[in-house]
Design a protein around this nucleic acid. Structure first.
Lengths: 145, 145
DNA sequence: CTTGACCTTCCCATGATGGGAAGCTCCACA
DNA sequence: TGTGGAGCTTCCCATCATGGGAAGGTCAAG
């Protein structure tokens, strides 16, 4: 099976399959006489594993860890669970951050007439003239040295 | 005021201030005799506006639009509201996507012993042997578009 | 033999940010 | 007056995962 077929069988683009090989996520594939990469069911299975891990938001680095654990018959399931749990925490942090943004934005949008007049509390808020609650202080880092 | 001072006054790093200038988000600053960029209150105000827009998750492109609307005294507030509303929708879509991931992951993690035995439903699921309800049908939902 | 669909490698772009090098300027202090 | 260091300048590189596209080889069907 050539790369195109492996691609449609796994849902991973040919471009990405080559990239995964380049960064060492998957082993370099054997080549047929014409220098084309050759794939078997085994490889497609691995690619599908990667695809699913990516769909769940795991980074390629985390995916690599999971892949190694998958192939390690002596793994401890706690190692897998740890990776998953950390990822859940990461997702929840990002979700909370975005929810904060949505909350503020909805409040501002609600206060904005959205008509043909220039008066706009959204811009007022961005300009520093808050309409109420102000999110994300987030500024004061490495200043002044 | 030099770039370092403008940076701590606005919360935008000097690196980013130069970058914003480079991509045309802000006008090139005047230079003093020593070739240092010179900033005034006006510019710091603009940088703070950008900072706040970024904190609310607006892209630099959206920020540019908002900035122009801010400076356009004849704007219609509906234009601003449209940008904000579209962004809210975008955030909500991403939140929903991540919540789906979290839901699946929590289910899997819940089913995983997390002990010293190799048996692991998380890996089983990634390998294609679902543990029950499994969203993300690898073939059905096109990431690409 | 030609055409077109594949495959190969290589380079570039994305978005927003940081790191760091090499070289300049400025200021304070001895 | 010299010197050190902080701060400024530009330039290049890295991130993360992905796609676009060019230039060229290969294969199968017409």
């Amino acid at each position: 099976m050539n790369i195109g077929e492996a691609s449609s069988a796994s849902g991973v683009s040919a471009k990405m399959i080559r990239y995964y090989e380049e960064i060492g996520l998957i082993r370099p594939m054997g080549r047929s006489g014409n220098n084309y990469r050759v794939y078997g069911e085994e490889e497609v299975h691995i690619l599908r594993f990667i695809k699913r891990a990516r769909n769940l938001g795991f980074s390629l680095e985390e995916t690599e860890t999971l892949l190694k654990l998958w192939q390690d018959k002596d793994r401890e399931s706690s190692a897998v669970k740890d990776v998953a749990t950390a990822h859940i925490g990461d997702l929840e942090r990002r979700i909370a951050e975005m929810q904060g943004m949505v909350k503020t934005l909805k409040h501002l949008a609600h206060c904005c007439g959205g008509d043909n007049r220039p008066n706009c509390p959204i811009l007022d808020d961005l300009a520093g003239n808050g309409v109420g609650d102000v999110p994300v202080p987030a500024a004061g880092r490495k200043m002044h040295a």
